[in-house]
Amino acid sequence: MNILVCVKQVPDTNEVKIDEEKGTLIRDGVPSIINPEDKIALEEAVRLKEKNGGKVTVISMGPPQAKNALLEAYAMGADECILLSDRAFAGSDTWATSYTLAQGIKEAGEFELIFCGRQAIDGDTAQVGPQIAEKLEIPQITYVKGLKVDGKKVKAKRALEDGYSVVETELPVLLTVIDDLNKPRYPSISRVVSAFQKEDCIKVWTVEDFEVDKTKLGLDASPTQVYDTFVPTNEKKGEILEGNKKEKVKKLLEKLKMEQVI
């Protein structure tokens, strides 16, 4: 079984601090991690390989340091990792990102299953998975929280707001996964060591290494543009109620009466 997983390296947004003066994010010193749901995706792929045999390929688009994420993916059980890295990809929105990844995937081989995380914790759009599926002209199942692969058939539990649906399709298919699906394993130390010895476990491709239409890359080709960014401000400053416990509760009741809540 030939399986591909899309992995994005992201800043740990829990660690992101804000420069209130400048209204920007302070990204220095913020650790880079594999996007959490992409680890779930990778775990599922590796489990399927362990059960059915086959190969797991990981692909990522990003700057050269995204290699670190791919080393970790290798240590978790990926067989081959491809990093699409070129200045030409900079500033891609999801349309351009999914185009670039889809072209890379076509070059990398024929895959029966393609996994993505539902959403990356930095861009937060949840758009890249479905857009890759559209560009590869294959079906998709999003929000997957349970999965059974049986021969050429896939049966997935797709989370809904108030329950789930059971969706069936035939391979090939693209799945986006959520964290109910599994609990990812820790990277194996021996595989980390062998990754450093096996230099070719991570391939880096520039625009020259796979077929791309150069007018469809990066910032210039992206339909959406970031027009402005700002740090959310706290519009209201709370009134802290003073006094002892009883007085505070009494004051709160008065306020709620005043606001016509009670």
């Binding site: 349309w95 999914s98 758009q127 857009q131 599926a133 559209e134 998709q140 929000y143």
Partner: peptide, 20 residues
């Protein structure tokens, strides 16, 4: 969940932008 499944698929097919 359905809108986020559909929106990106439409925007990719129509080659336009989508803001989430």
């Amino acid at each position: 969940h359905n809108g986020r499944d559909l929106g990106p698929r439409i925007s990719a097919r129509l080659d336009t932008g989508l803001t989430a």
